[in-house]
């Protein structure tokens, strides 16, 4: 453990030092940030100009809608980010030779796999939380302006809380666990190539093909029910379910929780895939000859 924690810190520093991480943060958060600021400006300016406008409660609903969209967009773009960062972290470092330096330390190889995975997962959760924080900040600013004696508009007090703590925590746990399988999937692919671009390209093609199959499965099942049965085993199906608007909205509305069968069943399936991917990845990485 005395070496494992510094290793995780090191891997996190490496993730943050990559331009890809900055671009991902920008791509993920620029839309909710801009949209919420525009909503805030419209909310404030319309009233200020005497053009009517809308109540604070409407602004809250708009921002909550943005948060749901933010969570769903996150699930869509995270595979692209993951493929690039994991490709860089394993294939790129193996190709450039810095993996060799890492493996000349007394660190165990399984620790390298786990530390790299943890670093990127923590970054993902922080990235998605950052978007949520921007949106919450938007509401706080709007409320502060609303409550200002100079411009007190709303009569009905409305909560400024974007997401309740319990729901937020559940969403973060969901994001973390649902991405475990995805991270494991990319790490397995990274063992076969020393070119990060090639690794990202091939793994994304495979992932998209699987997802396309899952989408087409209901139609194919009309031809043969076995097409549908195979699709049930695809891990992308579980991920789609976990990151769907229904699931996110359900948790926000308290209709669903992590303990609900509609959530924990796909989550359990997804964790099963994650365990398999990580076992294969560690097995491959332990035997991988480091030649560069």
């Amino acid at each position: 453990m005395s070496r494992f924690l510094p290793l995780i810190r090191f891997e996190m520093v490496k993730v943050l030092a990559r331009k890809k991480a900055f671009l991902f943060l920008l791509a993920l958060n620029v839309v909710p940030l801009l949209a919420s600021v525009i909503a805030l400006l419209i909310y404030v300016k319309l009233k200020g100009w005497g053009l009517g406008g809308f109540e604070f409660s409407v602004l809250v609903e708009m921002v909550r809608g943005l948060f749901t969209a933010h969570m769903v967009v996150f699930a869509w773009i995270s595979p692209f980010f993951l493929s690039l960062v994991i490709g860089d972290s394993f294939s790129g470092e193996a190709g450039r030779g810095s993996l060799k330096i890492l493996l000349l330390t007394p660190i165990e190889r399984w620790q390298v796999v786990v530390a790299k995975a943890l670093a990127v997962l923590v970054f993902l959760v922080v990235a998605v939380a950052l978007g949520g924080f921007f949106l919450q900040l938007d509401l706080w600013v709007a409320r502060a302006m609303t409550e200002s004696p100079a411009i007190r508009w709303d009569i009905q007090p409305t909560s400024t809380t974007l997401v309740e703590t319990a729901a937020a925590l559940q969403l973060f746990v969901l994001s973390f666990l649902s991405h475990l399988a995805l991270v494991g999937f990319f790490i397995v692919f990274a063992q076969f190539s020393e070119s990060p671009i090639m690794m990202a390209f091939v793994s994304l093609i495979v992932l998209m093909t699987m997802q396309l199959y899952v989408l087409m499965a209901p139609h194919l099942a009309r031809l043969d029910p076995r097409f549908g049965q195979v699709a049930d085993w695809c891990f992308t199906r579980h991920l789609s379910k976990l990151s769907s608007i229904e699931t996110v909205q359900g948790i926000l509305d308290k209709r669903l929780s992590l303990g609900h069968p509609d959530v924990w069943r796909p989550m359990l399936d997804s964790l099963g895939w994650a365990a398999l991917f990580f076992a294969v990845a560690i097995l491959l990485f332990r035997r991988k000859p480091i030649l560069n």
């Binding site: 490496k14 030092a17 450039r96 030779g97 810095s98 060799k100 330096i101 000349l104 560069n292």
Partner: peptide, 9 residues
């Protein structure tokens, strides 16, 4: 071992 390949950045 061989050329030392640390992190470039």
């Amino acid at each position: 071992v061989e050329k030392p390949s640390f992190l470039d950045h």
